[in-house]
Amino acid sequence: MPRALEPQQTPAFFVRGPSPLARLVFFSALSLALIATDSRLHYLTEVRQGFIALLHPLQLVANAPFNLYHASTEYLTGHNTLLETNRELSEQALHDGAKLQRLNELEVENEHLRSLLGASQIIAQPARLGEILHMGRDPFSQKMVINLGTRQNIRPGQAVVDGDGVIGQVTRAYPFSSEVTLITDKELSIPIQIERNGLRAIAFGAGVDNVLDLPYLPVNVDIQIGDRLITSGIDGVYPVGLAVAEVTNIERNPDSPFAQITSKPIAGIKNHRQVLLIGIPEIESALGTVINKTDGKTKTGKPTENSSPVTPTPTGSASQNVNRQP
């Protein structure tokens, strides 16, 4: 049987350097100090950015074989598969095109109506295509890392979506990559609206795969299994009307004043590698001007560029209500 660790060093007779206990105490104190600094004082953001930028080449090397594999499988796709996807996609494009034509007309009409009402225009939010570098390695949080960073003008707070719905929000931007917190993370919340009846609420991540919680809704709330939750857009981060989740379970317990509602995110983050990053809209005129019409354009509302998890500002809905009254 082989002996592990066979080429044993002759043990040093005299202690070299500080004793192990002294080293342990020193390094423990150092790490506790680091933990405290990082969690409360936020001095280390730049340090982290620098180190992540240093790690970036290593990350690229580690990703290389997988990228090569993906590229080669893409290259070796069969003729039939290509034809099939092509047909499917053109069919899809036809359907979408019909819808888009109607959308264009509606947009123009909406803009016109808004200008009649004196409401500010909704500004189109530019989007960028990013690629997922890897999923988060920390089993305690729901995160992933994408290949766009501050060099590409990505800022913390930007919304991340895919073709089906909302994925999450950029929470840390490094020079060449950025960290996206998924909506299922415990620390992220997203203002939503039930598509069926327009009821507004806030969905919180449950910290588990594929579960979103809707706490703080009364027991008698009008909600059904299968209801689609869409973004309400009042936070100024997510555009209005993106699909977020579908209600999967409702527990109405008479003992508790709140119903326990869980839902399942619609966006399939595990399915594809590309995501869209939506720019933070400049909404100063969108919120401020309507309430104080007399002030005219001089007053601007506060821009809600919060890098922290979304805090909804109810001003948007309030302004719309004010607006509707004659």
Binding site: L30, S31, L32, I35, D38, L55, G136, R137, D138, K143
Partner: peptide
């Protein structure tokens, strides 16, 4: 750094 957690947790 690689996991994106707080500095010092794995170190400790």
């Amino acid at each position: 750094l690689a996991t994106g957690g707080l500095f010092g947790q794995h170190a400790l």
